[in-house]
Simulated assay, not measured.
Amino acid sequence: MYRRLVFIALALTLIVVVLGAYVRLSDAGLGCPDWPGCYGQLTPAHAADEIAAAVAESPEGPVSMHKAWKEMVHRYLAASLGFIILVIAGLAWRRRADPSVRATIAVSLVAVVIFQGLLGKWTVTLLLKPAIVTGHLIGGLTTLSLLALLALRAAQVSRPTVPASLVRWARIGLLVVIVQIILGGWTSTNYAALACTDFPTCHGSWWPDMDMANAFHVVRELGMTAQGDMLSLQALTAIHWMHRLGALVVTGVLLVLALRLALAGQRGMAGAVFAALAVQVSLGIANVVMSLPLGLAVAHNAGAAVLLLTLVVVNERLVPARAWDLAGRRNDENAYA
């Protein structure tokens, strides 16, 4: 039961993360302007009168019936995931002496999910502040990564013997992917994905005019500077261009990692890293060239989640077997103490 629930939660988390990207990119993030219900009701159907009044008042506004359903389906799935994670944490704690269970991570997931729920609430009530929306994305991917660790331990994956230098490259690869995902989230939540419409240059330049200070000022309203002025094109350009430069760093690091994995005889992991990277880079370029079609934009978010999962799996598998066995024995000792 524990193992099945972990894998179900992992799959559901991936769905929730991708659906969350779809809700955001289709401008349905305020489809229901309150939380956790929709105008205080369980479903948009029960709030039909309030939604109709909002549409009549502002036909081009953020509220409509189809946007409300998108938002609420995302909330229903997220709530279901939270319940499953609570059950997983309870089962993991009962089986904490089992080396295939990581009870500490399972219990920590409960705290992550609670905070993630608060971020979901603040995303709506604070009107899509970039820092909150980006934090919500990071929380979802953190949940995905922790569940992947639980699934890998439950599956008791093999751990090959590899050079310590390869483990360090895997750690660096994971770190740069995390930083790049944060940059990507900041780009998306600030609607800066089309600040540069040409490729590979931006506005015909390899170093376009940029406003770094306002671009990366965290505490501010959507589309505004900290002083309340409209965010300039130069600021949006800075956000976009830093994400592109980050993509270059990630590409270089992961290509080296894939090569070193292949030379160490780990061709399966090397192929997975290369394939996930190639797909994600291709989607990023296609989004710029094709002016951010919704399907490709959502796929790019899904690709980021898959790339992160790939690096989590690689790092977990490269943990030395001796260290993993010792961790399991420590769990046993703590449980019986």
Rank of each mutant, 00 (worst) to 15 (best):
P160I: 10
P160R: 07
V162L: 01
A164C: 04
A164S: 10
R171P: 00
I172M: 10
V177S: 09
I178T: 12
Q180N: 12
I181F: 11
I181S: 13
L183G: 06
G184K: 07
S188H: 11
Y191P: 00
Y191C: 01
A192D: 11
A192T: 12
A193H: 04
L194R: 08
T197M: 13
F199E: 08
P200R: 07
P200H: 07
T201H: 04
C202W: 05
H203T: 01
H203F: 05
H203L: 09
H203S: 12
G204K: 02
W206F: 14
V218S: 04
E221T: 08
L222A: 15
G223Y: 06
G223W: 05
M224K: 12
A226I: 04
Q227H: 09
G228I: 08
L231H: 06
L231W: 02
S232R: 10
L233H: 12
Q234H: 15
Q234G: 00
Q234E: 15
A235T: 05
A235L: 05
A235D: 04
A238C: 09
H240S: 13
W241T: 15
R244V: 13
G246C: 04
G246M: 07
A247F: 00
A247K: 00
V249A: 14
V250E: 08
T251E: 08
T251H: 01
V256H: 06
A258S: 15
L259S: 07
Q266F: 05
R267F: 06
M269T: 02
M269I: 02
G271W: 11
F274Q: 00
A275L: 15
A275Q: 03
A276E: 02
L277Y: 10
A278E: 06
Q280D: 11
V281G: 05
L283M: 13
L283R: 11
A286N: 09
V289S: 07
M290G: 00
P293K: 01
L294M: 07
G295A: 15
L296R: 01
V298E: 09
N301Q: 15
N301A: 14
N301P: 04
A304Q: 06
